[in-house]
Design a binder for these strands. Structure first.
Lengths: 268, 268
DNA sequence: CAGTGGTCTAGACCACTGT
DNA sequence: CAGTGGTCTAGACCACTGG
């Protein structure tokens, strides 16, 4: 699929991003190497410059391409490949797949319980409200990778209660129930020592240092938390971040606001 | 500064982003509230729609604005404010300032040492190469927040060796020396138990669970690591991530490639 | 239905890089 | 200098939301 389909539902910039992404993954564009110039891509795919740039922007945000003014656009070197990209919302299975693993999910339990304090607070519930907790273990190549506890208020679940619910992404369940698309989540990354139970599931020694991701799911009408998750990560899953430097000050009360129409470039 | 300066060095979209950002911070745009529509902003600031969208895109990427098709653009609710945004590269001081703290830096030491193994590997050095290690403690409101160890190969430093180098951002030093702009870094987030030394600097009990950020600095000609840092974070510094859901499949070898010009929308 | 964001085009000029 | 990415405009049409 190296052709843009003008009639596809998928936007052109997305199709082009997909094409370029595949060429990077397949090695057709060498790691650290140059990709065709934007004007070149315009002609090759019969797209406007803005659309080409939009596509490349997607790849830049994914951390697999970088741009160098006056020189060109380049792929990121192979040793810098993302391990766990944390600023785009896709399900755990997809993440594991992306780092080259064969993912699998084991459904451990589905229980109605009184919401733990933290969950209560995160979901704006009353003290003794009931939630359903889905417990799952995601594995990569049969090795335990992520242990998840997903909490959903019983009142939202209604008649949907279903003890199976195995490999499904939590998103999908949320959307079936809620009718609304979950379009973002907010997570805190917290370092903890694994409890005996958690360590057992992840195949670690009790007390091992691991990462806990506390995630709250929101629907488009924000400020209304829908659900909450604890995600415990096996140390083999690396959280890797590409931080790009923004060219201009991303400021809060700049120190020098005295000059009226001063340019704002700072080197942070 | 609510006016766009057409003659400023700063791009128009950046100026508009700054204006909107300030209105969000000041509370002029209520938390969770709607901001003016894009067409409205076009008129108010005499900008084209694309430029307005580019500005808003900056804020979306910063996690302080979200977009809702057909409804409008909204600010993120106050309780969701970013604690530590990890996908834009600014110096630690600026981060601390952004979460409402008064930052300060204590320069602890500058030493020439033989590169530790991890540093050697990260910087592609020979086994016994010499590096300079800058140790600093960043505080927020006088409370210890981040302990950093910055490593730079001696051969890059040349005559610049300077035992002071206190509060300067590591970036700036790198750029002075290297002449090139550091434009991104790659970091791994690792959970550890604080050693006695580290715990002491951060005012914690030895063995406390904390986050370690191992960061490698690259210059635009990528694949050439310039420098390396260990950053130990006090648990009071929260790492918070906003994950947005991408509307389209961000795919690897999609399972269904059978259909020739099939649309690619999937719900991950 | 009117109003909103989402996508796209065609064309322009600027700033930076390397030869 | 030619070639590259960076910014910007003016205008168009689509898709989604809500009354």
């Amino acid at each position: 699929m190296n052709i843009i389909d003008q009639n596809s539902i998928a936007p052109l910039y997305h199709q082009l991003a997909e094409i370029l992404r595949n060429k990077i993954r397949s090695g057709e564009f060498l790691p650290g190497g140059k990709i065709p110039s934007e004007r070149n891509l315009m002609e090759s795919y019969r797209l406007s410059r803005n659309t080409v740039r939009q596509a490349i922007n997607v790849l830049v945000n994914e951390g697999i391409v970088y741009q160098d003014h006056g020189r060109g656009n380049f792929t990121i070197g192979s040793e810098l490949n993302i391990q766990y990209q944390i600023d785009i919302l896709v399900e755990h299975n997809e993440f594991l797949r992306r780092v080259g693993s064969i993912p699998s999910v084991q459904h451990i339990s589905t229980e109605k319980i009184i919401a733990p304090d933290l969950v209560c607070k995160a979901l704006h519930l009353f003290c003794n409200e009931e939630v359903v907790c889905f417990t799952k273990l995601f594995s990569a190549n049969s090795n335990p990778a992520i242990l998840t506890f997903d909490y959903l208020p019983s009142k939202l679940l209604g008649e949907h209660f279903d003890t199976s619910g195995g490999g499904e992404a939590f998103f999908k369940l949320l959307e079936e129930i809620n009718g609304k698309r979950v379009n973002f989540t907010v997570s805190d990354i917290i370092p903890i020592n694994a409890s005996k139970d958690i360590a057992k599931y992840l195949g670690l020694a009790p007390g091992s240092s691991i990462l806990l991701l506390q995630e709250t799911f929101f629907n488009p009408g924000i400020n209304i938390p829908l659900a909450f998750s604890f995600n415990y990560y096996h140390p083999n899953i690396h959280f890797r971040i590409v931080r790009r430097r923004s060219k201009f000050l991303v400021g809060i009360d700049p120190k020098k606001t005295s000059h009226s129409t001063e340019e704002e470039e700072h080197d942070y």
